[in-house]
Amino acid sequence: MTTPNKILPIVIGTITMTIISTIPIINLLNVFCCAGIIVGGFAGVYTYWKQLQNTGVILTAKDGGMIGILCGILSAIFVTGFGVLISLFSDINPMIDVMKAFDNMGLEMPPEVIQYLEKFSDEFNQHGFSPTITIFSFIFNLIIYPLFGSIGALLGVSLLNKKNNQAV
């Protein structure tokens, strides 16, 4: 009995997570507790489950969880990478927009916050992106994406196996 290759499910899951997280408007889905990442993990497991049909192999939580975690790690890398590329090509300094937004809201920023924003703004002007924000963003992505990806994938395993059992 041969188990299908897991590359396709990982690719599908990673693409789903990355698209949902990078395309404007669609990425609002992640505002609901990373729903987009959960959907990506689920998509990966669903693809693997489809591949397993008619092979006699049962979808295991181990395989599902691993798919979710791997999709999460890869998406964290791609999303951070795309973020840097978009900053480089768009030539926009988002820190100026942040400062304007604070001004429009009539909020008085503490001097420390202004100092940070100016530092990040200088980085954007100098390199086209902020290395500090990118590093922190990457670290946070590496925590959040595999975590929510595995939740989506394991939810998928439980739900799809339940569906299978009901069908028998």
Partner: peptide, 17 residues
Amino acid sequence: FYVIPGFVKFFDEVHSF
């Protein structure tokens, strides 16, 4: 109630593996 059983099963299978 849906996530915990999935994680328990996942770690049990990884542990056995």
